[in-house]
């Protein structure tokens, strides 16, 4: 394995976490390819090959619509996110494409609250090496929680 690409990928995962934690939504969108897939799916559905997901977005347009919903239309209790993302595991690697996974834990803190374990799971990713740097072609966040704690607003 090429150490440089591994370090690049590790940095990329941490940048992703920093973007979602800081609610930098424009930067979040720019981490994806135009025809990307982004999905947040319960492990139960994933393992039983059931297609339903809590959120299932295809293409940057849908990502933008989601951000519009988050920032303009959805009524919800404000909260902060804190992502802890493990070192990535590369499953296959070509000069153009990386298949990889990483575990994540997301802590949620509300205005009057203390941090709660909100969502724990695994990113299953396909990441493309483009002239503009690494971009997510597909990210499926498969979460272990049986229940979402009321509602899930922000991207994981």
């Amino acid at each position: 394995m090429n150490m440089e690409i591994y370090l690049q990928l590790t940095q990329f995962y941490q940048e992703y976490a920093a973007n979602v934690d800081a609610a930098e939504w424009d930067s979040w969108i720019e981490m994806f390819t135009e025809d990307c897939t982004y999905r947040i799916q319960a492990r139960e559905n994933h393992e039983r090959n059931l297609p339903m997901a809590a959120l299932s977005l295809e293409g940057k347009g849908m990502l933008k619509d989601r951000i519009y919903g988050i920032t303009e239309t959805i009524f919800h209790d404000p909260y902060m996110q804190n992502h802890v993302v493990s070192a990535p595991r590369i499953k296959s690697l070509t000069p153009e494409l990386i298949d990889c996974e990483a575990n994540y834990a997301v802590f949620r803190t509300k205005n009057d609250g203390i941090a709660q374990v909100f969502n724990v799971g695994r990113y299953i990713d396909r990441i493309r090496n483009t002239p503009d740097g690494l971009k997510i072609e597909s990210r499926i966040c498969v979460f272990d929680n049986d229940m979402i704690l009321n509602s899930l607003i922000y991207p994981i």
Partner: peptide, 16 residues
Amino acid sequence: ANLFGPAGFVSADDGE
């Protein structure tokens, strides 16, 4: 289905 459920554009409001 993106409109509905715990992350839905619409239904998330209801749970809250």
